[in-house]
Design a protein around this nucleic acid. Structure first.
Lengths: 227, 227
DNA sequence: CGACGCAACATTTGATCAAATCACGGGGCA
DNA sequence: TGCCCCGTGATTTGATCAAATGTTGCGTCG
């Protein structure tokens, strides 16, 4: 009971870990806009943590590509160029269908039920026009799926990829609304139930391609937008 | 002229960056053995740096998977299990042939000449039985190749993968000697010269598979070996 | 238009606090 | 009587903080 920050279930963890997750979630859910500068002291004030933990969290996030370190020892939320989007698409297509394939080999009925539950929450969020809810549920769906694949290294790679397009995802959802958002999850879950490995892989491929196409289409070089 | 450490061409960089590269090279070239504990204070003494830079470098390396953080806030060089090797193989096969493909699209004559030069140094190292020389040249070959692919994100992913099996690579070379080391570089370079994209991709696939098979074969669960 | 000065910020250091491991000694059990 | 298990204290190591230092960027004045 030494910490007076918001009780979001991060008790007992070291400060740098808590700070890391805090910032990571803010990147993932779009609380930080692309191009926005990130200062250490600002974070120190905002999160009520010391300087060293913030520093370590920032270093870790830049190593993962969630943040971008300019040469001038300044850190910003990266803005995706068309080049980056193309590369991210290629990387995701190379890895995530494989994870789906592995997951289809290992998934059980209980997990499928859980995934369906998450997917229903996702549909609800879309129906409500709840962007944050959609992003959160979508991420949770894929995270849960990756856990089933039992491939921690590849999963870590993919998580890093998600960190990179998180901020842009938020911007895009704000632009196009929650209509036309990708959801190949039904096909994926059906493939899980029939143990069709190839179909699961294909469904994931389609989901990734659809999502990244959305980002690519809306990728305007917005610099200083209204936060 | 504030730093009295060894002049290895790392002048002008921030201390944490210098420390990071130092440790990373030691991991990559096998100066640190798998299972070996890594302490902050030991590094502080050995590298003559402050505590905070060492701390940041360690955090970054653990984030990349080059080091493994135990729950008990202790850090060790990871030991690869068969599971990990299988996963690393899958990830490398998914990514590196693509990089070779992209490199083949973009490579020019001058770069091919440079790569051939590195490959000759590599052959020399094998002939001399120089393990460190082989590891260094091999890494340099792939790094130079990746630079040609113009895919910084995927390249960063692959670099992270290399960090993971670096220590084991060293151990294995020590066991089997420099004979039978993988070298599909000739095929790769020939494919570059004829602009055969598919052949380049295939050569890289073979090189990766050969190298990882070597690791998998020699992967004994050695715990406390003679350091 | 260029040079100077100011302010904000990152970097680094050293010290201090907290946690975990290791070694050692005593007691119980075969 | 000898061996093994467990509790306790010392020591090593990690985590965090506050302050000093150097650099960068920007506004301003000549």
């Amino acid at each position: 009971m030494n910490n007076a920050s918001s009780e979001t279930g991060r008790a007992g963890l070291p400060a740098h870990e808590r700070v890391y997750r805090e910032i990571r979630d803010q990147v993932l859910f779009g609380a930080l806009a692309p191009g926005e500068p990130v200062t250490i002291q600002g974070l120190v004030e905002r999160l009520g943590a010391g300087m060293t933990p913030v520093r370590e969290a920032l270093r870790r996030l830049t190593a993962e590509g969630a943040l971008h370190a300019l040469g001038n020892r300044r850190i910003v939320v990266p803005e995706l160029t068309a080049q980056h989007i193309e590369e991210l698409t290629e990387a995701r297509l190379a890895l995530e269908p494989r994870l789906a394939y592995r997951a289809a080999q290992r998934v059980d009925a209980k997990t499928i039920a859980m995934l369906r539950s998450i997917d229903r929450a996702l549909d609800d969020a879309i129906a409500r026009g709840d962007v944050s809810g959609y992003l959160s549920a979508n991420h949770q769906f894929h995270t849960s799926l990756n856990a089933v694949a039992e491939a921690p290294i590849i999963t870590a790679l993919v998580e890093g990829l998600w960190l990179r397009f998180g901020p842009s995802m938020r911007v895009i959802c704000g632009q196009v609304g929650t209509r036309n958002l990708p959801d190949r999850h039904k096909d994926l879950l059906d493939a899980f139930e029939t143990r069709d490995l190839e179909a699961a892989q294909e469904a994931m491929r389609a989901d990734v391609e659809q999502g990244m196409a959305l980002i690519a289409r809306s990728a305007a070089p917005v610099t200083g937008s209204t936060v």
